[in-house]
Write a protein that binds this DNA or RNA. Structure first.
Lengths: 225, 225
DNA sequence: CCTACCGATCGGTAGG
DNA sequence: CCTACCGATCGGTAGG
């Protein structure tokens, strides 16, 4: 019989540098039950931040390990390759972006200018995805798409399609009402490009705010009517 | 004693692999007179193509050397580092782009809608710079800006500024005439982004042509009036 | 521009 | 998740 208090971690512990002691006791059966399972999100976040700042090739797996207090070989316990880690970052980012996007669109109030409000919310949600605090996952995808294998690209293309698909009905409505003159398909590509390119120049600490950016984008793409 | 013929290479020789014989005769004095002086443009073109396709980090200097039939150390005879080669590619690309752009703007006929025609030509010239045959230099700049040193970025920023500056008076005229509603500075950033992002999705072999793309962009950004 | 080479770094792994 | 390590690759250089 094991004393109950031995099943608990010590209260004080240098959590960032020293590896936490493994909890002992009953055997762990599923991956979710493992204590080290919760290092995976930290690994993903650190990788996203470093990949965004330095690029995929310029970031070593040793950099990533060090950023979360691991030793050089340990990331490969969680991900079978550096590329798999990159792909996981992108998938995580796209899932969060899709969730954020559909939340935003659903909040748009019904009314005569509903499509306009929906577009505004899509644009604003996109900027949040790119420039929100800690949102490095999707910018990594925009930059490092080329570093994936063909198979990984295929896995991601469904998520990308879902993300972009949300724009089509809104743009079609705006085209029908005369707010948008360009062909819908090209308009979608150009609009998403205009917004996404902001990762190259937008600095949250100076210049326009995300709200002002959203206003400017709306004014640029839409006719008054 | 060694038979003289053993000192000569065999007469038949695969020319792509074997290095060409040096011309003999009078000594060469200036760099321009050297036979190898004309290998530099080939090196730049090969580097641009490979950097665009594979990325800067994923392309080795050995890849580049092989693409022009050199041996692995020889590119460093022409460029003092891999980064210097990258920077030269970008400078070359920006100079060509600026020349192409000012040619295009000057061709615009005077008239009541001159600013409209100038914007159309700016857009079309930008697409040519990104998607014209052999125009890999500027796309490399858009992708690999991060791989430069701080000093190199500084050297390039003047060229970039000159390129972007050409858009401002045109956009200001269109703003004044009511064709453009968004603030000029943000409009310029968003427009250039929309166009530049096309390196991610445009395929000259299918879908819209560059002329159709230009039409769509004009329709997207401008009001009828 | 070639030959021959170096030092450093990197992704990844075996075994515990 | 750590320890200890490997094979491969890479940018760059000395000397000719």
């Amino acid at each position: 019989m094991i004393a109950p208090q031995l099943l608990h971690k010590p209260a004080t512990q240098a959590s960032a540098v020293a590896p936490p002691k493994r909890p002992r006791g009953r055997p762990r059966k599923t991956a979710d039950e493992r204590d080290d399972g919760n290092r995976r999100p930290a690994l993903l976040s650190a990788a996203a931040r470093l990949f965004r700042r330095q690029g995929f090739d310029a970031t070593s797996t040793r950099d990533i390990a060090a950023a979360v207090g691991m030793h050089s070989g340990s990331p490969f316990y969680h991900f079978k390759s550096k590329r798999a880690l990159l792909c996981a970052v992108m998938e995580e980012g796209m899932q969060a972006a899709i969730a954020r996007q559909s939340r935003a669109v659903q909040e748009a109030p019904a009314g005569p200018d509903q499509a306009l409000q929906q577009l505004r919310r899509l644009i604003r949600a996109h900027f949040d995805t790119l420039h929100g605090r800690g949102n490095d996952f999707v910018p990594v995808m925009l930059y490092e798409h080329r570093s994936l294998t063909e198979l990984q690209r295929l896995a991601l293309s469904k998520l990308q399609h879902d993300y972009e698909a949300a724009w089509t009905p809104v743009l079609e409505a705006l085209h029908a009402s005369g707010h948008l003159r360009a062909p819908v398909k090209l308009a979608r590509l150009l609009i998403l490009g205009a917004l996404s390119w902001s990762v190259q120049w937008f600095d949250p600490r100076k210049g326009a705010s995300l709200d002002e950016l959203t206003d400017a984008a709306m004014a640029l793409f839409l006719k008054e009517c």
